[in-house]
Design a protein around this nucleic acid. Structure first.
Length: 647
DNA sequence: TTAGGGTTAG
């Protein structure tokens, strides 16, 4: 939808027609009789609304101002233009530009700057540049450079931003912290980090390093480039830290997958007396979801309610995601149902939640409901639904959705969708079709696509095709150890000793080592990680003692099951749902003590001796249980996983 | 009464 159509839709019909008729009045100069009317009270209202972020209301006020007979002056336009910029509405913005010229306000520098900024934010940087080049004074004003530099950066034209910055320096126009704030966000990809670091040096050289906003921006740059350690060092060295500083570091950890560090820093933040806001909670909840730490997540939910953030859409979506990923689909669905307003992310979170737990039918039902509700799907929700169909064995349904992506919704499938469909076909044993699909891909398939085929070959023991998929996948991801292990396991299952040896030699030659598996348990608000043979926990002796007394574990499991009336379990962080904290710790230790790779890293799909562990758990907990790996939950009954995957 | 900027979910 174009911005103009969006604008038309968001404005009420009456205000809209008023707006356009007021423009017609200006064009025909019929307003000239009332040109002397004062507009200062209108300007005050406009300013207040724009400052409060009520941009639509501010913009709606403008046609009222004109039709009342008041004449807009130079102080009217910056607020009206700012509102257009914030709402990304280029058409009203251009009409305001025409008004600016008609009313003779175009010679005011601050009006010119507001116009440039508006064009930049509406992705019309060339219009802004034209204004800049034609203006007699813009090349001497820092604010004009700042507006245009930020515009180039936001429109992914870092090169032009840098050129303009150089021009500014050559002409000796003073650089201030806002110049930095416009440039640094262009350096949030690893390729540009070097330039960002030189800006960091320049910032210190110019004596601007006391500015917290620039510090926040630099911190974000480091963490977004994946330089988490540099970011943390910079964070620790910052003289003054505000809420945004803490949020930038916490979100940085979350975005880089350091979920435990997120929780540590969150705790530190609270101890320092800094009050978290919705941005903090979003990162914390996302980390709870990754760690399976639903108890901490529930505490966060209480805090959110106490702070009055309960209706924040971001937080509601983060809560759905957290509960769904931790296995509490009932709570996730309740939050989803209770939401007064749902967006595409809310639907994606709940659909994905059902998908990862193997409840494909629910996911499909929800997806169809979403379409009926008039929500336009995007590529991300298609990944969720295709993956849900794949895990639940809904092959034809999944293929139908895949087919509809482009035909019905105009969405070009990406490699992530192809890998889901390869997985979908592969799990159903349709390996040749899966290969055909890969060969028909418009772009070169990535590692995940060939990896999905390799995984399917492993399930169906197709050695020949597995070898082809393996060859392709390691060309693309030569250091991804999971694929070597997958092929090795297939050779092992088919008693191909020569093959096993071949893979081992390759791994040794490439100096690849398996990441150590670990378990985690959430207890008293902290997440404890255990490695195989790990004895670093302060209560190691007691835990190991318990570990070797299986009868006690059985007894405790039975007792806690009796007490488990409301169906809410204590949880073993990333692995097994159990019914007592002590039992949970013992399980975690048992897992690691046996060297079983229950919890695997993103790329490592191997379970080592986990079958031993599963048999033990089955003995102790004579009921269904759930184990979670890096990608999803596995539901076991009588020691067998329903997905029949790689256990 | 005036222009430029930084952190958030699937």
């Amino acid at each position: 939808m174009t911005s103009e159509r969006m604008y038309m839709k968001t404005m009420s019909r009456s205000t809209n027609s008023l707006y356009y008729s007021s423009i017609a009045n200006l064009r025909s100069n019929t307003y000239s009789s009332s040109i002397n009317s004062s507009c200062s009270s209108w300007n005050t209202q406009l300013r207040e609304l724009a400052k409060q972020g009520q941009y639509q209301k501010a913009l709606n006020l403008y046609p009222q101002l004109v039709s009342s007979g008041a004449s807009p002056n130079a102080f009217t336009f910056p607020f009206a233009l700012k509102s257009c910029a914030a709402l990304c509405l280029p058409v009203p913005g251009q009409q305001l530009h025409a008004h600016v010229i008609r009313t003779g306000c175009h010679s005011e520098p601050f009006v010119q700057t507001a116009l440039m900024s508006m064009y930049c934010k509406c992705s019309l940087v060339e219009n802004a540049r034209k204004l800049f080049d034609e203006s007699p004074y813009a090349r001497t004003l820092t604010v004009c450079y700042n507006a245009l530099i930020a515009g180039y950066t936001h429109n992914f034209e870092l090169c032009n931003a840098v050129l303009l910055f150089c021009k500014m320096r050559l002409l000796d126009v003073s650089v201030n912290s806002v110049t930095m704030l416009g440039l640094i966000p262009g350096c949030t990809v690893p390729l540009h980090l070097g330039f960002g670091m030189s800006l960091h040096c320049l910032n210190v050289k110019c004596g601007l390093d006391g500015d917290m906003s620039v510090g926040n921006c630099l911190l974000t740059m480091y963490v977004r480039c994946g330089s988490v350690c540099s970011g943390r060092k910079f964070f620790d060295d910052m003289h003054e830290k505000g809420l945004i500083t803490w949020n930038a570091m916490i979100s940085g950890y979350a975005q880089n997958g350091h979920a435990s560090l997120v929780l540590d820093l969150y705790r530190e933040m609270e101890l320092k007396g800094m009050s978290p806001d919705p941005v903090t909670f979003v990162a914390v909840l996302s980390s709870c979801a990754n760690l399976g730490a639903s108890k901490i997540g529930t505490e966060v939910e209480q805090k959110i309610k106490r702070r009055g953030f309960g209706y924040n859409l971001f937080l509601q979506n983060a809560l759905i995601n957290m509960y769904a990923r931790c296995g509490n689909l009932v709570r996730a669905h309740t939050i989803f149902n209770d939401m007064p307003e749902k967006n595409l992310v809310s639907w994606t979170a709940i659909i994905g939640g059902y998908g990862i737990h193997g409840h494909g039918e629910n996911a499909v039902q929800l997806f169809d409901q979403m379409i009926d509700a008039g929500i336009q799907p995007d590529k991300t929700v298609f990944v969720s639904i295709l993956s849900a169909c794949s895990h639940a064995g809904l092959t034809d349904r999944g293929l139908k959705y895949f087919d509809s992506m482009e035909k019905k919704y105009g969405l070009q499938p990406g490699s992530e969708h192809y890998s889901c469909v390869v997985d979908l076909l592969g799990r159903a044993g349709r390996l040749k079709e899966a290969l055909g699909l890969i060969e028909s891909m418009p772009d070169k398939p990535d590692g995940a696509v060939w990896g999905a085929l390799l995984g399917a070959c492993k399930i169906h023991r197709d050695v020949e095709l597995a070898e082809l998929a393996f060859e392709r996948v390691i060309e693309l991801e030569p250091t991804n150890i999971g694929y070597y292990v997958l092929l090795s396991n297939l050779y092992s299952e088919t008693k191909n000793m020569e093959g096993i040896l071949k893979v081992r030699v390759m791994m040794r030659e490439r100096k690849l080592r398996k990441d150590p598996g670990f378990s985690s348990v959430e207890y008293s608000g902290r997440t404890h990680l255990f490695m195989a043979g790990d004895r670093s926990h302060p209560q190691t002796e007691g835990i190991y003692a318990m570990l070797y007394r299986l009868e006690d574990l059985t007894k405790e499991a039975n007792e806690s099951e009796k007490n488990d009336e409301d169906g809410r379990n204590s949880e073993l962080g990333n692995n097994t749902r159990v019914h007592s904290e002590r039992l949970a710790i013992a399980f975690a230790l048992m897992n690691t003590a046996l060297g079983s790779q229950i919890l695997v890293t993103k790329n490592l799909r191997v379970c080592g001796d986990c079958h031993v562990f599963i048999k033990l758990v089955s003995k102790i907990v004579d009921r269904q249980f759930v184990i979670r790996d890096a990608t999803r939950f596995h539901h076991f009954q009588n020691g067998v996983c329903s997905c029949n995957d790689y256990w």
